[in-house]
Structure formats: C-alpha cells, structure tokens
Design a protein around this nucleic acid. Structure first.
Lengths: 239, 239
DNA sequence: GCAAAAACTTGATCCAACGCAAGTTATTGG
DNA sequence: CCAATAACTTGCGTTGGATCAAGTTTTTGC
C-alpha cells in the first residue's frame, strides 16, 4: 500500500478522531497512543475501492471521516449496495466472524479518511482496549439487523416503498440539516438509489420526480434533500 | 418453562448429540458433563414457537435434532422466512452481538430437540469450551453471508430464479438422498416457499408445477424432491 | 470553449407476476 | 364416516415496473 502512512506521524487529527469513535471512546492516553502507532491511515477519493469481495482479509478498518459503501457485484455485473458505513464505525471486520476473506466490496462514497490495522493485530487491539470487541460485535449486530430488514422489505414492499425506506435510512444515518429539510451528506445518484433498492434507474427517477412535484423531496443532480420525512414514512408503511 | 428439564437427567442422547455438534466437538468428558449440567433440554413439536422477535433474550440454543425456522412478521401480518437452522448449530445467540433481545422469531419446522443455556451462562460456557466463541462467530458469519446473498438475489433475480435458489439451498442444507433425487428433510408447503422467496403462493405453485412436468422436481403435498439440481442451477444463473 | 460523457427525465410499450376465482385432492377432527 | 380445513392447481384479467426510445441538462476533460 504505497498510499498508506503510519498514523501517528500525522499527529493530532487521527488522534482526536480516534478518541471520538465508538470502538475507542474514552480510552487512556498512552494506550490510545499505542493503538494509533499500530495503525496505518489512508485518504480515499470518492469512488476509490478499498477492498473487494473474496479478497484476502489482510486488514480491518475504522472510518474516521466520510462515507464508505459496502456492495456486491453479481456475475452479470449488476451491483447491489448493501450498507453505508458512517464515520466512527468499524468495517472490513472479517475477523469478527472467523472469516479469512471479505464478503463484500468497500468503495468510498465520498472522500474519506480511514485507519486500518493488519488482521494479525486483532487480538492485540482487543487486549489493549476492552471495548473494541464489544464494538465489533455491535457493528456486526447492526449490520445483521439491516440486512434482515432489507430482506423483509424486498419481499413485502413495492418499489416506491423501498425507495422511501432507503431515503429515510440515508438521511437518518448520514443526514445534514438544511433550511428545506435533511440532506444526504454525500453525493448520491439515481443509479445509486436503484442499486440500493433493486429497482431500475428509470423507476427511481419517475418516483422521485413525482415526490419533487409534491414537495416531499428536493433533488438535484447527485443531491437529495428530504423535506417531509413524515410523508415518506407514511408511504413506506401503507398497507 | 414447564416443559424444560435438566439435560443431564435425560442421560445419553443429549450427551452424544452434544459431542457431535460443531460448537462442542471434541471436548473432554468432565467438561462436557459440566456444560450439559448447566443446560436445559426441550422437545418441540413442528410449529411450536421457541421465541419471538423483540423478546427478551433470556437464553441461547443449540439444535440437537430437527429443523428450526427463523422468520420475521411484518406489521401487516406477512411472514418472511429468513433462515433454517440445522442440527448441531447454535441459534438465538443475541449475546454474540451484545443484543438484549432476539431479532427474529424461532419456530420448529419439524419436531425438534434443543438444548438451551440461560444468557448469563454465555461467558461461563465460552470459558469451559474455547471453541464455543469461535463457533458462535462462525454461525453469525454464515447467517450474515446468507442474508447478504438473499438481498442480492431479491434485487437481481426473477421469481423463478429465486425459487430455484431456495430449493437448492434447502436440499443443500437439509437434503436427504432418495432414489429419485434429494428430498427436503422436513415438511415444506408452497406457502413456506413463498415466504422464503417473497413470491406469492400461486406463482410458486405455477413454477413448481411446470418443473414437476419437466421432471426437474417431484413434489407432493408438503414434500419436495429435487431430481435435477443441475437444471435448477442453470435456471438460477441464467442471464 | 467545445465535445463527450454522465446524470437525469419522460413518454410509450410490454410482460412477469399478482390477485381473483373456482376448482381438486389430501388430511384432520369430531 | 363425513364435514371442515389445509394444501395445492389452473385459468384469466390486471397491473407494477421493466424495457425501449428519445430526449434535456449538467459536468468533465482535452
């Protein structure tokens, strides 16, 4: 990895962000220093791929800033977006399931800053920071929960309802308040939403155009603001 | 739980089955005795519900014999079947994700024999048997893997393809060889397959009738035998 | 600064899958 | 043993969403 550098060399930013993240919240100064010393850090440009499904899991990651998309590509070349990782969360934690390879592809949805540790350091980090193991398990549980909900949605809800649910999830996890509503904090296209919901891009466009007209959302190229989450919730729940 | 009994009191059967299960394979005699002593066992009739989604996770389970279905029910009363647990596997392991409640409902798909331990014994069991923690993590990983695949399938495959994939998965995990092919080892209805694939029962019936006619499967009431898994694989993969 | 590409829209057409209707066959229970 | 119920089938009309087609608008790169 030519682009990675030792994390501590970079000084304060990583240290501050590390302390703010869930898996390493409230740990002592010297231990924090040691954990940072063992880490590498890396900046990603939007669109960069960090690892691919079936790749050997040589490292695990903590997202310090930005958004990372977890996805799978089918043999036919279709992409399905499974999850968006937000700052402060672990990802690429194959080790937590005794797995030797990644099960998904990780791609930056925006410019990102990530910390990583080689997989052989897993036990060492868990030892240095007792909260780490629990954080990894919680991450896994939350992801499991989201996948399960998605299966249920895909089995029981219409395309319009799935798009509503996807937008609510996006603004909930990665929302920025604006004066007209909550905006998704990273660039997102109709194509992205189609890969997130299993609908085709044309259907997504049609549904969102209608919502634009009725004032539920305000959307421009690569940008979505949800003005009326209450109405989206109504749509997503309708019998 | 009036129906539960101390496991050891029941003698040899549980002991033998415990040793044969992945999470407790190859553990020493006295330790095995202690683990059994801490367990309760219970027999379930097909259709019995063991726990429900959102229930307080008071225990975790090891399936010794039979098949357990993990499912979710929507507010509208639709059921979605998420997973089938086979003998020798752990389930209801909310503890493994630091969760205090079950995320799914567990219902016996056939008559079952289960062992259970109260949640507070989690750490004790892990201590008695070092392989237990790893087995729990592997179970979680496998389930994650299955949920992820399901999301991808639902997003990209037709109803016919999803039914083919479901039957392949069923015979793969719970298949019994017969002279005409591999039979699903527990009773399964069109309704069940519809809840497993997100298709409606009529569509499932139509697709399976066609396969019956072309000799791919042999199906009678509550019973499915896959005669030509190769053809089902072809169907599931087609562009 | 202009061409090419990417993002998005909107209309028209088509079909896979759903929902309805009306059956048959097998199982269960009083 | 017979009624009630559960499981399954099949035809037919309808429709949600995909596909096809043809655009406009915005961004990117030489």
């Amino acid at each position: 990895m030519a682009k990675t550098k030792n994390a501590q060399a970079n000084g304060g930013l990583e240290k501050a962000l590390l302390s703010a993240s869930v898996p390493f919240a409230g740990i002592e100064g010297p231990v924090r220093g040691e954990i940072l010393r063992l880490a590498s850090h890396r900046r990603l440009k939007a669109g960069d791929t960090l690892f691919r499904q079936a790749d050997d899991a040589r490292a695990f990651f903590l997202l310090l800033d930005g958004f990372v998309r977890l996805l799978r590509t089918t043999r036919q070349g279709e992409q399905v977006v499974l999850h968006h990782v937000t700052a402060g969360n672990l990802f690429g934690i194959a080790k937590a399931t005794e797995s030797k390879s990644y099960s998904v592809t990780a791609r930056a949805a925006s410019d990102c800053l990530v910390l990583s540790w080689t997989s052989d350091l897993w036990d060492r980090i868990a030892e240095l920071n007792p909260a780490f193991g629990a954080a990894a398990r919680r991450t896994l549980g939350a992801r499991m929960q989201e996948m399960t909900s998605k299966v249920v949605e895909m089995a029981t809800r219409s395309v319009e309802q799935r798009i509503a649910l996807a937008l609510l999830r996006l603004t909930d996890k990665a929302g920025v308040a604006t004066d007209v509503g909550t905006e998704v904090a990273f660039p997102i296209t109709r194509q992205d939403i189609s890969e997130l919901t299993g609908a085709n891009t044309h259907s997504v466009s049609r549904v969102m155009s209608a919502w634009q007209r009725s004032g539920i959302i305000q959307s421009h190229r690569r940008k979505v603001i949800v003005a009326r989450p209450d109405l989206l919730a109504d749509i997503s729940m309708a019998a």
